[in-house]
Design a protein around this nucleic acid. Structure first.
Lengths: 387, 387
DNA sequence: AACAATTCATTGACACGCGCAAAGAAATCA
DNA sequence: TGATTTCTTTGCGCGTGTCAATGAATTGTT
């Protein structure tokens, strides 16, 4: 494949991707390299046309004005695919992780060959239609080792100990990375989103389960036992209901999808879905509001715990019921924020809390972002040498 | 100072310090370097006498037997000093962080000049008596930035925004590092202790406050806002007592020193100290046992939360009341372990829990370990260039 | 208008760190 | 004694990045 970027080149390119147009001197300051090093580092990128100079900005001060460098993001494209229990979401992204095209489809089956063939067809088709596709990323929930592409266990699909990366790499013509879905979402956020380039960042997703991924000191962290960020089983209420994990009062038992629907059923509203509950709350239903507020408080405790233990600069919370930034769907948000502020200790409360609705596109974009990240960290592509 | 170790040399030396006598081939496997690289990396160390070959072991298999390399740990010594609210604890350590000498003294005052002069005198004296002292480490509780030696805020001493590293470096003849006390303890543990070389490791200290430090993917992590590991304010009991932080049911409000003594007072045993409570429990006092068991359960919840969120390989728990490894002081230990096992989710329960009594020596040794760690990471020594 | 001052950018020389691969060394086994 | 195996060293070379000197483009000054 591409002749593996040198450390400096990767650092500079990563900075350009995250920060947008930047002058050489700024890059030198940001990356800690010398100006000469910058020129050297970008020279292969400029030669290949991946990076170009934009018009020199007039500059206010004295001296020679700086000329900005900009990634020609559309020169190399990525396909990102997120696999859920029932379907695929795929996006075509440029290097700066902007979405150029989007595609949803149902799974034809859940067994690995069927799913992987379906993914491969999609990747191959986009590779044909867009010759600039260079990499692909695949994300799915469960225990994934991105360095080997091995899937340990994926509960939704029922897969176990499967070399997904190697298999898929053999079916398409571009290198492939496989990642856990929440970590992929986090990677996307860190590459191009609210938390772009943040020193530390946490991502929490509320859905059927509660997911969490962490980035510390610029790196996405992986737990020793494959378990990490099990925020769903943090204690939120000692007198709370029993959780499927056997304990009492877990965040998930109070705020998970099942918990919310169960509480609604207990109040005489059986057979709903989460979006319906949210709609009811917006329409003024006291039951729906109370249930979602209770869930929000539990989540707030979980987030505060996360903030107290990690001190991230930003926590991004996503989920169907979470609500948008400006009140459009703000059903849970106030109670989340209130409880978070109450239980965050000291300067952990300075942690920025970003709430946003969950879109399938973002999940898939995260997978594409992992492909870009793998390019920048010269991590192993599946099946290939460690480049 | 010493001409800064190359990355490989530092890696190899670090491995030798942590693992003890090791052959070149083993080192190559452990560090990922080639055998040739190992020979090159250690050659300056062998030349300087810091590393020596030990007698070749007979070796069971065929082929040329491996000759082990060993750090001559007593060739370079470190002074480690821990400052508490009322006193200093200092140790003299060798490169493998073995304690050669120990010293306690009272503080003559709490103002920075007095304390730093007292620390400097101690360091200077040991430098005179032992010409091989090469580095010094200082640890104190509070918000410390080890990269600059700046102390943001130290509640026990009442210091605020003080360039402790630079000041102390100007008073002694060896380079100095300053660290937060719990992170220093963790560093010591990772350098030479139960968690030596662990991929991920957490340290929790129970005392007047509850402290916590984390090591992930081989690196001690620092929070964005200086706050990290505030495990003391994790929710342990929704119906619990009010904590000084304003919340209800924090671990610290149930298991902190003040909380334990208060509960004992409430049961008609006022004016005790923690060691006295432990002694009472060992002597069979039901009150003491129940109070300590309750504290243990709260701590167990805190540790389980930590394990769920981080998935560390090992958690080390220390404190006066915690108890030793084999029941000598096992008062809290059973309830800690029981509650931990209950609330640790999935494979987070595989996390090894090490309980051990707290010794002042270990604190100071941690400070010395930070000095060794700084040597290995070629981090900036205070006041000096980033070497 | 010419020149200084300032800031940005490039270039060549240099060093060093490390992988690669071949050779050398020290043991066991036949 | 020689073949085999395993550990260790050495010579070679490339890639990478710093350093310092030079060049380029602008603003400010006399």
């Amino acid at each position: 494949m591409a002749p593996a970027l040198s450390p400096s080149t990767a650092r500079v390119l990563g900075t350009l991707i995250r920060e947008g147009p930047t002058s050489r001197m700024q890059l030198a300051r940001m990356t800690g390299l010398t100006p000469g090093g910058i020129t050297r580092a970008i020279s292969p990128l400029v030669d290949s046309g991946l990076v170009r100079e934009t018009a020199a900005r007039p500059a206010g001060g004295r001296g020679r004005p700086a000329t900005a460098l900009e990634v020609q993001a559309d020169r190399e494209l990525q396909v990102g695919v997120k696999v859920t229990a029932t379907g695929l979401v795929a996006v075509l992204c440029d290097l700066r992780c902007r979405v150029l095209a989007e595609h949803h489809e149902e799974l034809r089956g859940q067994d690995p060959p069927t799913v992987l063939e379906q993914v491969a067809e999609l990747v191959r088709r986009w590779c044909r239609e867009h010759p600039r596709v260079r990499r692909a990323g695949l994300s799915l929930s469960g225990d994934v080792d991105p360095s080997t592409g091995q899937v340990g266990y994926s509960p939704f699909l029922g897969w176990r100990d499967l070399p997904v990366g190697r298999l898929l790499a053999g079916m398409v013509d571009v290198p492939v990375v496989v990642e856990n879905d929440v970590r992929a979402l986090l990677t996307g956020e860190h590459m191009a989103g609210t938390g772009a380039g943040a020193h530390s960042l946490a991502m929490v997703t509320i859905g059927a389960g509660i997911g969490c991924a962490l980035l510390l000191e610029g790196r996405v962290v992986h737990g020793s036992h494959g378990v990490l960020g099990e925020i769903g089983h943090v204690l939120a209420d000692s007198a709370g209901p029993r959780c499927h994990c056997g304990n009492v009062g877990c965040v998930e038992a109070l705020a998970g999808e099942a918990a919310v629907l169960e509480q609604m059923a207990g109040r005489g509203h059986p057979g709903l879905t989460v979006p319906e509950v949210v709609a009811m709350a917006r329409a003024g239903s006291a039951d729906a509001r109370e249930v979602l507020a209770g869930a929000g408080r539990a989540i707030g405790i979980g987030l505060a715990t996360l903030a107290n233990l990690f001190g991230p600069a930003v926590i991004v919370l996503t989920g169907e019921a979470v609500g948008g930034p400006d009140g459009d769907y703000d059903v849970m948000a106030p109670s989340v924020r209130e409880e978070f502020a109450r239980r965050a200790f000291g300067s952990a409360a300075d942690c920025e809390l970003v709430l946003r609705p969950l879109t399938f596109t973002d999940w898939a974009r995260g997978a594409a972002a992992c492909a870009v990240a793998a390019l920048l960290t010269s991590r192993a592509w599946n099946g290939e040498a460690a480049g």
